[in-house]
Design a protein around this nucleic acid. Structure first.
Length: 436
RNA sequence: GUCCCCAUCGUCUAGGGGACUAGGACAAGAGCUUUUCAAGCUCUCGACCGGGGUUCGAAUCCCCGUGGGGACGCCA
């Protein structure tokens, strides 16, 4: 039975890279019908924060990665590590040294003088000359275990069969191998997966932009889209498919298909993929996703007019790439104030005759029999032909007047949805800004 | 500096000796559609880091070089 783990330390938000590591572990477990363990490596008492822990947990849930065991906390297992260290001390494999962290002595492991080999599932055999390794601290002088020790003890106690982690841990492996050897236990199988890189090909970090899962959540990305996208970083399914449901990803996933090269995180492709996912969702579901944010921002107050919001969502469904974009598009339909885009006002309303055209539109709209999409379309097109101009010459200024923006969805549907009263009100106030 | 890893279009990748005039996707460009922006459709641009081997045959295997990255904490 396959058993893997995701073991973050709560010293920061869940990073895209860590999430991808978690994902590969999770996918492997689900594919193999194995067990996915969640473990918290909180032995750095200075940097570990509960706030980070909560964020990591909620991001994991948001992404849909559920665990079968845990969370285990290393700080609750301190005695276990000390026992193991005591054993090594007694056997003469480790020694004590004065420390600087606390009153206690640190426990340090002597390195074997030999070559150790790791047989990695993605990299093959990698050998390390242990003569080059410094002795390894097992227990810090604050009494807490050091990473490479706690990690080995836990993986062993928790019966982890496969350690799937980032490439950057390759150099930790010989140290851990030394611990396994000293303890006389068999190491698990290792799979070191490539790192996620920034555009300059160095490890992705804050200076490359948003790095935490919550950042992407806030930017309006869908969890399924994000999961699908990061699954494709360092892995590819068979065939030419790229967008595939999580069930398919689980079915297709294998460590053998994981590549060795670092992958640059390309937000453009993520944005594209997110748009694809948005288009695949039903308008009702999308409405549910957008509603909380709109309420939070005070765009929608009190009891929401669901039908209206649903109509708006339908209108922008085919063009939105993120939830954030979708909810921004909804704003002009729910507020009285229109945020005018300066450039749009200048280039469209600033055109000679724009004011006159809008005046004519106001007049027509006021006496229109039915203020609906076909009625508005007929009305505008008739007016345009009477004035001897193209319909577009009316459509553009109306759009800017009513929505404040040069771009948007179908004008007639937009205006119908905004409603007669508000539309005319906005057209009137726009005449003031327009060139006569 | 030492050790380790890696190397196919700008980016993500397919490719595991002949099916490769190297495939797909994002991005970019052009066009169609059109009411703007998207979406959709069609097309275009675009890569095997270099050099040696091995082999009848190499993107694929080996070696060297070069380039990039990672690790060198009583952080994890």
């Amino acid at each position: 039975m396959v058993k893997v783990r995701f073991a973050p330390s709560p010293t920061g938000f869940l990073h895209i890279g860590s999430a991808r590591t978690a994902l590969f572990n999770w996918l492997f477990a689900r594919h193999e019908g194995g067990i996915f363990v969640f473990r918290i490596e909180d032995t750095d008492k200075e940097r570990s924060k509960d706030e980070f822990l909560q964020e990591i947990i909620s991001s994991m849930k948001w992404l849909g990665m559920d665990w079968d065991e845990g969370p285990y906390y290393q700080t609750k297992r301190i005695d276990v590590y000390r026992d193991y260290a005591g054993r090594l001390l007694k056997e003469g494999k480790a020694y004590e040294a004065e420390g600087t962290l606390g009153g206690q002595k640190a426990v340090i492991l002597s390195m074997p003088k030999e070559t150790m080999v790791m047989d990695d599932i993605v990299h093959g055999k990698v050998s390390f000359d242990m003569n080059l390794q410094k002795d390894l601290v097992l227990i810090k002088s604050d009494g807490f275990p050091a990473y490479n020790f706690a990690c080995v003890i836990d993986d062993n106690d928790m019966k982890i069969t496969h350690v799937i982690r980032g490439d950057d841990h390759i150099s930790n492996t010989p140290k851990q191998l030394a611990v396994y050897k000293a303890l006389g236990i068999e190491p698990p199988k290792f799979a070191h997966i490539p790192l996620i890189l920034g555009t300059d090909r160095s490890r992705m970090s804050k200076r490359h932009g948003a790095t935490s899962i919550s950042d992407y959540r806030q930017m309006g990305f869908l969890p399924d889209a994000l999961v699908n996208y990061i699954s494709l970083l360092g892995w590819a399914p068979s065939g030419d498919r790229e967008i595939l449901p999580i069930k398919e990803i689980i079915k297709e996933f294998s460590l053998e298909r994981v590549g060795k090269t670092g992958a640059v995180f390309d937000i453009n492709k993520l944005i594209w993929m997110n748009g694809e996912y948005i288009r695949a969702k039903g308008p009702e579901e999308l409405m549910g996703m957008v509603m909380p944010g709109l309420k939070e921002k005070g765009i929608i107050k009190g009891d929401p007019d669901k039908d209206r919001l649903l109509d708006v969502v339908k209108l922008f469904h085919p063009r939105a790439k993120t939830l954030e974009e979708l909810s921004n598009s909804a704003v002009p339909f729910f507020t009285d104030e229109v945020a005018y885009d300066e450039a749009a006002v200048v280039s469209v309303l600033g055109k000679e005759g724009a004011g006159k055209k809008l005046e004519a539109v106001v007049e027509r709209f006021s006496s229109i029999p039915v203020f609906d999409t076909p009625g508005l379309e007929n009305c505008v097109r008739d007016l345009a032909s009477e004035l001897g101009i193209k319909a577009a010459d009316l459509i553009h200024p109306i759009r800017v007047a009513v929505t404040g923006s040069k771009v948007g969805a179908s004008l007639f549907e937009t205006v119908a949805l905004v409603g007669k009263e508000k539309t005319i009100e906005r057209l009137r106030s726009a005449i003031g800004k327009a060139k006569p």
